[in-house]
Design a protein around this nucleic acid. Sequence first.
DNA 1: CTGAAAGCGCTTACAG
DNA 2: CTGAAAGCGCTTACAG
Lengths: 340, 340
Amino acid sequence: MATIGDVARVAGVSRSTASYALSGKRTISADVRRRVEAAVRELGYTPNAGARALATSQTRVIGLLAQFLEDEFAPAMLQYMLGVSNTARELGYDILLATEADGRNALRRMTDSRMVDGIVLLNVAEHDDRLPILREAPQPGALVGLPADCAGVDVFDLDFEDAGRLMVEHLHRLGHRELVLVSQPEHVVERGGAYVWRLQNAATEAARVRGITLHAEFGSAHQPEVGHDLHGLLDAYPRATGLLINNEAAAAALPTVLHERELSAPADLSVVGRYSDEFARTFSLPYSSIESAPDRLGRMAVRELVRRIEGQAGADEPHVVRFVSPELIDRGSTAAPRED
Amino acid sequence: MATIGDVARVAGVSRSTASYALSGKRTISADVRRRVEAAVRELGYTPNAGARALATSQTRVIGLLAQFLEDEFAPAMLQYMLGVSNTARELGYDILLATEADGRNALRRMTDSRMVDGIVLLNVAEHDDRLPILREAPQPGALVGLPADCAGVDVFDLDFEDAGRLMVEHLHRLGHRELVLVSQPEHVVERGGAYVWRLQNAATEAARVRGITLHAEFGSAHQPEVGHDLHGLLDAYPRATGLLINNEAAAAALPTVLHERELSAPADLSVVGRYSDEFARTFSLPYSSIESAPDRLGRMAVRELVRRIEGQAGADEPHVVRFVSPELIDRGSTAAPRED
DNA sequence: CTGAAAGCGCTTACAG
DNA sequence: CTGAAAGCGCTTACAG
């Protein structure tokens, strides 16, 4: 493989001149620039990334820590990954991907060995055990998901509280008085999946204020269990006229469950979910939903991370905590409750 | 960040001795080893990956080229990615992930700049335009998917021809005489998605030999179009008693379509799909299927790749083309055809 | 406008 | 069993 030394020799200049001609960091005569460019083409020269990283202390690589937990729904994670990866590429960065169960180990490996310029953490928990490690690392970090302590990192998340309120308000306005909310499994909450109770608490409070009944329940994250869960809930609350779904697996299972009960939305039951539009299309879900905007969140996280990496943020610029306002995408699955 | 020089100083030895003590590449007195290890702990030393790569010409990173094409079904791709990523980690490698549309560019970037020791190509097409670039690269490559020309790379794929035969034989044995095969969209074939026609041709031939009718058709890769496609096919071939599905989106849409027609499998229609068990669980698909084994294929590709990278393969060891034999997972969706 | 030299942090022949 | 030195391929102050 050709090195910058080869380029310099072919172009008849010094290595430093060749380097400057390529980086544009100092003025170069037109003649020399042409000769260097010709040499690069002739030799098919590409800089060695390791050597460049060693010299500049910049790798142009971002570490992406995904997490595929047993009790969450894998296809939902993919959307965040793609948002991060595609944005990174647009900004000239590559992605070092870690999918291993022990995120702490992966994080330490990447940061300590200087393989990356910055880190994106996905699916961040309330007391995420990766955070202390990230805070000690010399590289900046951006999170998707809201932890209890946001010190030292930039944080991006859907405003789940607003989402919970929005769901309840929407159905209240249509005249519903008894709702069921199906959340992620309880152990997601126990593990620190704060988004579950952030939405749930806000929904509960919004219902209380409006004097309507909300049954907050958990559902499994797997098929076919979650289908049974849904049947159980519909049996348990026969007077409920609205269903709020904060659980991707439950959303995916709902069409089958409604078919089995010969119910349809919104005629028999109003339904509002919380998932991405991409997810809705993949699973052919006909329910109105709060857009979870994974691509947008991934994009925001990377943009801010790159600003920090490249020092445009200013070393002492305070860290941000930014919420995406939920939007309700109307797919026509809500209406006034059935009169009976 | 501490360097090997710091470790050497604290341990009171030379940098080379510190390095050897850590690599174990030459014998070190017990005393020196202890001092070096203590220094490493005290300083929290981790080798700088870029510097090591520069010195050894080994990055311990594998490039993974995923491809999320408009007309294919994203969640299926994720399984292959996880198989590759998890196996790589077990073998001590990290993953540099490229998801951009222009795989050629990503491939060139990774290989030319020596960011990776080897490459895994996913979703390889008949005449994949990434292959010429991979062949010219100094790093070895492993493919998941069978191209027309396998020269210079190791290739792993499901035996789609066997899969097609197996599907037809299975239903033939149960007494079916008229079948419909739903493949991926026609433009997947046109783009070179060889697995589509490999399965289709073998199924067609197996049907011909047995004197049974097989209607080979294409289906969309998107919801809700693919649902309409399925309705259309069931309308068009009312005497067909068996449905073969080589199209993930169609498989995901089928439960709803059957509900809408008030049909059930296997009472009214026998169904055999071709997807992974993981996929079946995610989408709650109750149909018997040919296991597409994405995790296993990813694992095989990485194992062989690492053998080549680490020179255990022998420089002149011929490249392999290895097919995974399809297995039918019985979920009870096939039976003798309805008599009427 | 250009060149010679130092340095980034490792590994590994070479020498003792 | 250990050390001094060279070298991997870049970038960038320093000097002219």
